[in-house]
Simulated assay, not measured.
Amino acid sequence: MEEEFELEMSPLCHEITDSGKTVTVEIYRGGGSDWHLEVVDEFNNSTVWDDQFPTDIAALEEARSTIRDEGIESLIGTPS
């Protein structure tokens, strides 16, 4: 039998706009595990990091550094 747990959303979840484009940063964990990072674009495409983060702040910093280093366009997919 699988153990059920409630997903905990970080209070750091928010939208980031850069170069006129916006993505939503979602940071969450379940069952007391490390934090997961997911970025959702305007077309509802998501980018999920394979790595987990010890804190929600570390996850947010990873999203910010990706946008800074690779550009927000790297997190935006095509319309479905």
Rank of each mutant, 00 (worst) to 15 (best):
N45C: 11
I27T: 04
E42D: 08
S46E: 12
S46F: 15
I57M: 14
I57P: 07
W35A: 01
E70S: 15
T17S: 06
C13H: 05
W49H: 01
I67L: 09
E42Q: 11
N44V: 12
E3V: 14
T55R: 00
I72Q: 03
E15S: 11
T22F: 03
T47N: 13
W35D: 00
Q52R: 13
F43D: 01
G32C: 03
V48R: 07
F53D: 07
L37A: 02
E6P: 02
G30P: 15
V39M: 05
E3P: 06
P79E: 15
V48Q: 02
F5Y: 12
M1A: 12
N44F: 11
T17Q: 07
T47P: 09
P11D: 14
E61S: 08
S19C: 10
S74P: 00
R29W: 07
F5K: 10
E26H: 11
E73A: 14
T66R: 04
G30T: 15
F53C: 05
I67W: 00
R64H: 15
S19I: 02
P79F: 11
E6T: 15
M9V: 13
D34Y: 05
T66V: 12
I57Y: 15
I76T: 03
S80P: 15
R29Y: 05
S10V: 13
T17M: 09
V25S: 00
F5E: 15
V23R: 00
E62K: 12
D69K: 10
R29F: 00
T24K: 04
